[in-house]
Design a protein around this nucleic acid. Sequence first.
DNA 1: TATTGTTATACTCTATAACTATA
DNA 2: TATAGTTATAGAGTATAACAATA
Lengths: 159, 159
Amino acid sequence: MQNPADNVDLGTMSESLGFLLRLAQIDAFSRLYADDGLSETTVGELSILHVISRNPGIRQGVVGRTLRIKRAHMTKIVHGIEAKGLLTSTTPPQDRRAVALTLTDAGQSFLHTHWPAVDAREIATTGDLTPREADTLRRLLRKYLGISDPQATREDLAS
Amino acid sequence: MQNPADNVDLGTMSESLGFLLRLAQIDAFSRLYADDGLSETTVGELSILHVISRNPGIRQGVVGRTLRIKRAHMTKIVHGIEAKGLLTSTTPPQDRRAVALTLTDAGQSFLHTHWPAVDAREIATTGDLTPREADTLRRLLRKYLGISDPQATREDLAS
DNA sequence: TATTGTTATACTCTATAACTATA
DNA sequence: TATAGTTATAGAGTATAACAATA
């Protein structure tokens, strides 16, 4: 189903960061969604829930900028998640234009149920890369994105 | 517009290859499309044209597998490109189920007009990465994807 | 005036299934 | 029976612009 030995000449596309990232991303998520029961949730929803979980009361717009989701789309997704009872939105008194997002208990337990599968798969599905190469890849992607490096908790690194 | 100093805790998402690839891919294409006049064409069309250009007479299904585009979607895109007069499809006598794709002269010149902008931007827009790091990133992505390494032509490398 | 979020629209992409014609 | 492509439909994501409320 993927790219067997079709032996296609990709030309300069195989030197294009954009297209390599595009293909790699598709593969990564297809691996992620392969066996697990994540089918109930979309990638957008899951990532939004995760970010809110780590940053309770975060502004909706900040979540959108972080995840590169446009404001119009954020509104739709957030309302959808809210309708499922997984998060609550409040208006902060300091800026009554904004919307602050927090997970409900149901949202927290939903995330606790589904997110570990993501983390687990990540380790198992790095293709032909050695663990060391996979780490280098992650580090370079973070640098490319301007994300500060070991943002994982100290406990994670120690384990 | 992007991710300034919002200082968001991404938790284990910053260790997730899938999500890092997702964010990086969005950034890469937004940089690619930033200044240039590529707005006429979609990413799908451009990549399909490029692959056909490098592999004249290639089967439609092989293009789809290579670019991770589903068959149903391939049909729609290819018909669209064909309607613009940029490619022709023929039925190979050896297998009359298949569709072989070749660029028209208009298709070739269209690609010659637009593809160099992609290559040029690639070099200029590698974020905070050093050229060496960008090369490493490309190499790791190719390995992750199972794409053989220096598939660029010798002439390209020499120039 | 600028910003935050909302609403609405249109298009691209993805996923799925039923269908045809060939092999 | 399996494969290559087509058709149709539904949902997810993206892009854009006009709008209200607030700063």
